[in-house]
Design a protein around this nucleic acid. Structure first.
Lengths: 338, 338
DNA sequence: TTGTAAGCGTTATCAA
DNA sequence: TTGATAACGCTTACAA
């Protein structure tokens, strides 16, 4: 249990000694207080550079009661999380925004197994706030988090939460737009491969699909549930074709699944888009990796991350006025598949 | 800048008051010191549960000069990182191992843009150690990190580093085994789709491929570089067939690329494995999403993460004796494609 | 086995 | 505008 020796880091005291002022003054300079004379500040800054002083985070937290740490709480199933390019962009956006501040991101996993530990950590004052990116319906314990901590949810939570902010993509409007595109291009037997109906995103996209067809006066074709993975997409597509081999359009609730679906279409000698038009959702890299470039509904995932982080930072700084729910708009990207 | 009020968290002092002992004794119990009588320890633990006590990280760090935080340094390109299921499993493994301890993972991004800030953070005593998962050749600044911090690299770094530990998959042996399997089943004109030759993994897998063929006394067929993506796999496969339409086997350096390659084989009316046998690498989900289940070389990615974390924890605890380089074995998984 | 007390490096409240 | 001087919650000799 003997930690390796680290070189002794310079302290406020040492900087003060070098600059000929007290530790308190150095602290003021470091924290940008206006109550310091220009000359003194200059001397202090020089000393800081000379010594390579870096504030000690622990001491600062202890005294100020702020940790400058934000927890990123992600679903238990890491493989799904990280395999999902959409979540990747969100995290990229969060990180990018946080990089402009001195907040640090703590990666936590919401495993049912360790939720006790996780919750105690979160509620034990070890972070200033939390970002929860949860696509689970069963992470109920997280919903109590808002009572003890500023929380921003990325994606509408599956369970009702009593507080906190939510940033989400307008999934209903997006899938409606995507489906309308199929209708507009002349499709009449339109199926859908949905996301998991345990996830709000999966539910909302089905809602939009059904709404669009209803408006167009069309009956929905096969509705098969997928799991947002490549494999899930091909499995679901096979089932769609089994239920109705004569569909002429399919709305797939994620690009990754659409990629899987398209390989199945091809092996069934169905041309895209001439026999079956395909619209995906996400506009992730998967949309460009298919043989026929995918027409899809772009969701601004990186923007979502930035928005999430910005709202949390504001809340932490006592800035009021953000709406409880922020819905980000989607955009139809027309390529070749529909 | 007014942080929201948080409920006052219980302290050692309060636990001690409830249990009728001093703060020092509580500290001993919390830290598992043997120098506490069983009855007292029990009383303390009861009080801890009752109060929901959680150690204050900042105070603990300040006093012990350990942060109990580990930095996870990942490549700039988040999308690649998170889109890569292989890396996802590694991170899952790291996290799983760390969950058994009270180390916390700080997510950092090795962006050339912010490397100054990142480095200062890492070297400023804000973390006890770092895990670098870098597949970049140009993250040279990271190689100096080992001088100020215990570091474990996941995947052999592209640049020479002066210290630290490296955990990697035995890519050479793995691709050799995969290629040998093709030879053994009777293939004589064997091509390969390689990974990027800027990445150690890509390089090593080509090395193993060539070694196996050399040993078998066979001349290598077309060698075409891919980029580990689905699209890259199909592009490369087309080029392979252009160079030699009569190959009877192909070793593809990743499952994702193999999936892409197989669609190309199929559209060229080449049956797998009868006309062309295919061996992939990774044993990721992609290996199961293909029409013909993929024979592939499994790499123990989650184990790799666990190993990385374990080594770092040991180093942090002053445990010596880990070799500089730990190579994890691979395993051939025979399915239908070869 | 337990308690006392001295730090750890900041911030923040007073005076000066 | 500055400087003492308490906290902040914990760890860790040193005593008892």
């Amino acid at each position: 249990m003997r930690p390796p020796e680290l070189p002794q880091a310079p302290t406020l005291e040492m900087v003060g000694a070098l600059a000929g002022v007290s530790r308190a003054t150095v602290s003021r300079v470091v924290n940008g207080s206006p109550r310091v004379s220009e000359e003194v500040a200059l001397a202090v800054r020089t000393a800081i550079v000379e010594l390579g002083y870096v504030p000690n985070r622990a001491a600062r937290s202890l005294a100020s009661k702020q940790t400058h740490a934000i927890a990123l709480v992600v679903p238990e199933n890491m493989a799904r999380l990280f395999g999902d390019l959409y979540l990747a962009s969100i995290i990229g956006g969060i990180h990018g925004r946080l990089e402009e501040t001195d907040y640090v991101l703590n990666l936590m996993v919401a495993s049912a197994r360790a939720d006790g530990k996780t919750m105690r950590y979160l509620q034990g004052g070890n972070v200033d706030g939390a970002i929860v990116i949860s696509h689970h319906t069963n992470d109920t314990f997280l919903s109590t988090l808002t009572q003890s901590l500023p929380v921003v949810f990325g994606g509408r939570p599956a369970v009702r939460v009593q507080g906190g902010h939510v940033v989400d993509v307008d999934n209903v409007a997006g899938s409606r737009t995507g489906t309308e595109h199929l209708v507009r291009r002349g499709c009449r037997r339109i199926a859908t491969v949905t996301g998991p109906q345990t996830m709000p995103g999966g539910i909302d996209r089905l809602t939009g699909f059904l709404a669009a067809l209803d408006e167009a006066g069309l009956k929905p074709g096969p509705v098969v549930e997928g799991d947002f993975t490549l494999r899930g997409g091909s499995d679901a597509m096979r089932e769609v074709l089994r239920q109705d081999p004569d569909i002429d359009g399919v709305f797939v609730a994620s690009d990754m699944m659409a990629a899987g679906a398209m390989t199945v279409l091809r092996s069934n000698h169905l041309a895209v888009p001439d026999d079956v038009a395909v619209v995906g959702f996400d506009d992730s890299e998967a949309a460009l990796s298919t043989d026929v470039p995918l027409t899809t509904v772009r969701q601004p995932s990186e923007t979502m991350g930035v928005t999430i982080a910005s709202i949390l930072i504001d809340v932490l700084n006592g800035v009021e006025g953000h709406p409880r729910l922020t819905l980000l708009p989607t955009e139809l990207v027309v390529r070749s598949s529909a």
